[in-house]
Design a protein around this nucleic acid. Structure first.
Lengths: 135, 135
DNA sequence: TTTTACCCTATAGTTTTAGTAGATTAACGA
DNA sequence: TCGTTAATCTACTAAAACTATAGGGTAAAA
């Protein structure tokens, strides 16, 4: 299941990408428009900022805005920041690889074999979509 | 993340598929061989039986055995039983469709758009793999 | 009477999804 | 320049859901 964090994060990014002139947009406006708990969205936008997707401005007229062009924001990076590893099992993860303790031989593991294919197919989708493609 | 339930279930099915003559195999044997908590595996095998993948036999010489040929067990059905919907969001699920309450227009939703592609790519993998392909 | 699957319940642990309370910063008007 | 307001930032807490596992007893087959 996709977490609400990721879902909300994607919706917020999409919302910001549609803003004219890339003006700062307040959390409250996004939360209201997208039916998201404001405080929850607040923490999501914060992690998006910390990971280089958004800029922010405090005080009156402040808010969040995209720091890059939507076409330069691939879904791979967004998903990794919001949802975590794209692989469903650590032993097939490119960026977060971990060996399974219970599994003696990775090459012989049926789960490994299947999940490699799933990872590659998902990666293919995420690589072929930028934020601009979702508008 | 793939749940351990699914992971263990897949490993158990693979184990059973390799058994000569499709003789009943005891839970304890599978659990030991695959490093799985026996009690947990017990419940997993039970759901696999209830969903028509396995047969069982009680008493001495009893155990679980495959009810169909491995080549006739597509990963789509296994994954749906063990892991649940293949779609990451209910609004793009074929078998478990649900409308999002927060989302006014499905056609306009960026998450929907992306997750449709992810679902299709995953479905593609699962449809092209039977239990026999994992051996 | 032993061996095995079956069934129900409980529970510790983790993750998710928030909510609460306040600090910090920036703009603006008196 | 000072105070008010508007906004983000930070940390802590908490409820709820889910995951993984354990315990103990029942039923059936050999």
């Amino acid at each position: 299941m996709l977490s609400k964090k990721t879902k909300y994060g994607l919706k917020a990014l999409t919302y910001l990408a549609k803003v004219e002139g890339n003006e700062p947009v307040q959390i409250a406006e996004i939360a209201k428009h997208e039916n998201i708990s404001q405080k929850f969205l607040e923490s999501i936008l914060l992690t998006l900022r910390r990971n280089g997707f958004l800029g922010s401005k405090k005080g009156k007229g402040g808010g969040y805005y995209l720091i890059k062009e939507p076409k330069d924001i691939p879904m791979t990076t967004v998903m990794r920041v919001l949802e975590g590893p794209i692989a469903m099992v650590p032993c097939v993860s490119l960026n977060f690889y971990e060996k399974c303790e219970d599994c003696p031989d990775e090459e012989e593991c049926s789960v490994h074999k299947l999940m490699l294919q799933v990872r590659d197919s998902a990666l293919d989708v995420y690589r072929n979509n930028t934020l601009a493609d979702l508008l």
